[in-house]
Design a protein around this nucleic acid. Structure first.
Length: 473
RNA sequence: GGCCUGUUGGUGAAGUGGUUAAACACACAUGCCUUUCACGCAUGCAUACAUGGGUUCAAAUCCCGUACAGGUCACCA
């Protein structure tokens, strides 16, 4: 089995594209097949520099192994369509020779006129095939004069074409809607559809996995395969991924691309895991799994026919799970990329302790900066709400005083701080909120924060003692 | 507009003819856990599978119509 992922080099990679790639990769690897990357750059106007490297980077981050592609060619290269122009022309001409395609010299203006006429009659535009009736002499003459041309395939006007799809079954497409499709554009580039068929055949692709938006168009592909008398691949069309508002994903809509998510601090493994569950589910109902597990459990029969909606919250939950399950060292190494250290002079161990403190609650990498903020600002003050709480019970001053006395004597570490808190509980008889909140407020000036003992430890012995002393006096 | 496809809760979904819970997960709500936030745990959350008909002893599951949603009809991919 051989499959191919064939993006256009137009920049970032969409979450929907990625999802399709994931399905494609999982299926291919399940059968020990080859996963090929082919760059479809037949539209020269939309090309973006560096996009190929970018696509490689994305796929590699996601854990894909590309068996053949422009940066690691196999024996079916080149893998960039703009480098295969001669091939397309040869095959297009081959079809002309066989009488299954023809030169078309119609100008943009002529086509525009036809479109207008069609619009007047409220009919969808369809090329009338006038150039297919040109005489041999006329064609030779036009060619000699260097008049620009395209090559169009003769399409049947009656009957229907059957498309077989693994997910959607047998689809009938009425031939009457099929235009004499352009194979070769006047700039010498092939159209997407044509290049696709030629390349898939030449590259020995056995399974075509792509978005459902191509389902109808597959009739055109089939007609091309038939014209060449080539064997058709197995088609697997997968339903689309919709944005959170239920509309098609688009950058304009502010929908996130893979790279956006990655830069926010989403782990590629979590993204892949989440995306693989959009429109597919494993039989064993497992929710968190690795790429390896995805591959072994993947079953194309369980791909859904209906489109699904992207849910940022659920992705966040997956990411959270993955962060929580990371080893501390890996976590620290990873979070480094997202942590914008506000104070380089802080002790390294102190920073590590702080970062680790939030590991279990972190949703995405950049979130750390927001969470950690209070430990870097020095505008300590006890606001009205806190003051009110401190005045709410007469046991509170005793708690503070006792805690102050105890921590003066201890070694400054989390365990001993914790012991001190427990000791206060015993000695003063305060518990729950009345025990913790006074200490927290006076030590940090805040009513919330992470674990109290850690918080106190990180604020530092001198500062905590100073604050408590001021409060006691 | 023609054609193609889809429709199970706020979301992802399981379920493809059978009794008296439509699984599971996210989200949400409430409660518990040494304070707050989070984590974790527990409980609750679709009188019902878009809708109307039909087939059947029996339908979310099969058939037809309707509605709605998406896709597609380029010298874009």
């Amino acid at each position: 089995m051989r499959s191919r992922f064939a993006p256009s080099p137009t920049g970032y990679m969409h979450i929907g594209n990625l999802r399709t790639a994931i399905f494609e990769y999982a299926l291919t690897k399940k059968y020990n097949g080859d996963f090929i990357l082919r760059i479809e750059d037949t539209d020269q106007t939309r090309k973006v520099d560096g996009a190929i490297e970018f696509i490689y980077e994305t796929l590699q981050l996601c854990g894909f192994k590309i068996d053949e592609g422009p940066l690691n060619p196999g024996k079916y290269g080149p893998y960039i369509q703009s480098e295969r122009l001669d091939l397309y022309k040869k095959y297009a001409l081959d079809l002309v020779e066989k009488g299954k395609a023809y030169y078309c010299f119609c100008t943009e203006e002529e086509l525009e006129e036809m479109r207008k006429k069609a619009a007047l009659r409220n009919r969808p535009f369809s090329y009338d095939g006038r150039c297919s009736k040109l005489s041999k002499e006329k064609i030779a003459e036009n060619l000699a004069k260097g008049i620009p041309y395209v090559i169009r395939q003769k399409m049947p006007k009656t009957g229907y074409t059957i498309v077989n799809d693994v997910i959607y079954g047998e689809i009938k497409i009425d031939n009457s809607i099929l235009d004499d499709q352009i194979l070769l554009k006047s700039d010498g580039y092939p159209t997407y559809n044509f290049a696709n068929v030629i390349d898939d055949h030449l590259m020995n692709i056995t399974h075509v996995i792509r978005g459902k938006e191509y389902l109808d168009q597959t009739a055109k592909y089939n007609l091309l395969y038939e014209a060449f008398e080539w064997e058709k691949p197995t088609y697997i069309h997968v339903a689309m991924v919709l944005g959170e508002d239920g509309n098609k994903l688009s950058k304009r809509n502010g929908d996130a691309s893979f790279m956006d998510l990655y830069n926010e601090g989403y782990l590629p493994e979590a993204i892949v895991n989440y995306l693989s569950l959009l429109g597919w589910s494993p039989e064993n109902n497992q929710e968190i799994f690795t790429m390896e597990e995805l591959i072994t459990n993947f079953d194309e029969k369980r791909i859904s026919k209906s489109s699904s909606q992207y849910d940022a919250k659920k992705l966040q939950w997956f990411n959270h799970q993955y962060i929580k399950n990371m080893e501390d060292n890996k976590y620290l190494e990873w979070i480094e990329k997202y942590f914008e250290n506000p104070d380089e002079t802080k002790d390294e161990a102190w920073v590590k302790h702080l970062l680790l403190l939030y590991k279990n609650g972190l949703n995405y990498g950049k979130e750390i900066n927001e969470l950690v903020k209070d430990f870097y600002t020095d505008n300590y003050s006890i606001n009205e709400e806190c003051r009110e709480f401190l005045n709410s019970d007469e046991i509170i001053p005793k708690v503070i005083k006792e805690f102050l006395n105890l921590i003066k004597e201890i070694n400054w570490n989390v365990e001993e701080i914790n012991n001190a808190i427990m000791q206060v509980k015993e000695n003063v008889g305060a518990k729950g909120k009345l025990l913790f909140m006074p200490i927290r407020i006076v030590a940090s000036g805040l009513m919330h924060g992470p674990e109290l003992a850690d918080t106190i430890y990180l604020i530092g012995k001198d500062k905590v003692i100073e604050r408590l002393s001021n409060e006691v006096n």
